[in-house]
Computed example of a mutant assay.
Amino acid sequence: MTETLPVIAAPEPQLIHAVIAYNAFDPEDCTRITIDHAPDKTLADYLGGPLPEEADWAVGVNGGLIEPEHWSTVTLSPGDYLTVSVRPHGGQGGGKMVLRLVAMIAVMVVAWYAAPALAGAFFGGSSIAAGVIGATIPTIGSFKVNQETAP
C-alpha cells in the first residue's frame, strides 16, 4: 500500500511593490522595485533611503494618499502597492499666474470690442484709429496686469 505524503510548498515571498516616479508628467521617468516586507517597519522606514530630500514627495499606499505626518504610523502589508511621486507645484507666485492669464484674456476681449467703438466715437470710424487704439489697449492693459499681479 502506498502512502501519500503532503507536499509543503515554499512560502511565497512577502513583497511590497513600489514605484518611484521622478516626474509626474512623464510616466517613463520612474523606478519600479519590489521590497521585502518587514512587519516591524513603518512607511517612514521604507522611505528613508532612496528619496532625494530636495523634492516634495506625494506618497500613496494602494491608491490612497498618505500625508507626511502619518508616515511614521502607517505599516504596510505583503502585496501592498507603494507609489511615491514628486508633487508638482506651480511656478513662482502660485495662483497669481492663473489670475494674470484670466486678466490678460479680459484685456484682449475689451480691446477687440472697445477699439472700433472708440474709433467710431472719437475719430469718425477711421480704420487707422481703430488699429492704433486696438494696439494701445492691450499694451497698456498688459502693463497694468503685470504691475498688479507681480510676484
Rank of each mutant, 00 (worst) to 15 (best):
E3M: 08
T4P: 07
P13Y: 13
Q14I: 04
L15Q: 10
L15P: 11
H17D: 12
V19W: 15
A21L: 11
D26A: 07
E28P: 06
I33P: 00
D36G: 09
A38T: 14
P39M: 11
D40F: 08
K41Y: 08
K41A: 13
A44T: 07
A44C: 05
D45T: 03
G48N: 15
P50F: 15
P52H: 05
P52A: 13
E53K: 13
E54D: 12
A55L: 05
W57Q: 03
W57D: 01
G63Q: 05
P68G: 02
H70G: 05
W71L: 00
S72R: 11
T73D: 07
T73E: 14
T75N: 08
T75F: 04
S77K: 08
D80P: 05
Y81G: 10
T83E: 13
V84H: 07
R87G: 01
R87M: 11
G90R: 09
G95L: 15
K96M: 14
R100L: 15
V102E: 08
V102S: 09
A103W: 14
A103P: 05
I105M: 06
I105Q: 04
I105R: 04
V109L: 15
V109I: 11
V110A: 15
V110N: 13
A111M: 09
W112C: 12
A115V: 06
A115F: 05
A115R: 07
A115L: 08
A117I: 08
A119L: 10
G120M: 01
G120I: 06
F123K: 01
S126E: 01
S127W: 09
S127I: 09
A129S: 03
A129L: 01
A130S: 10
G131M: 11
V132P: 10
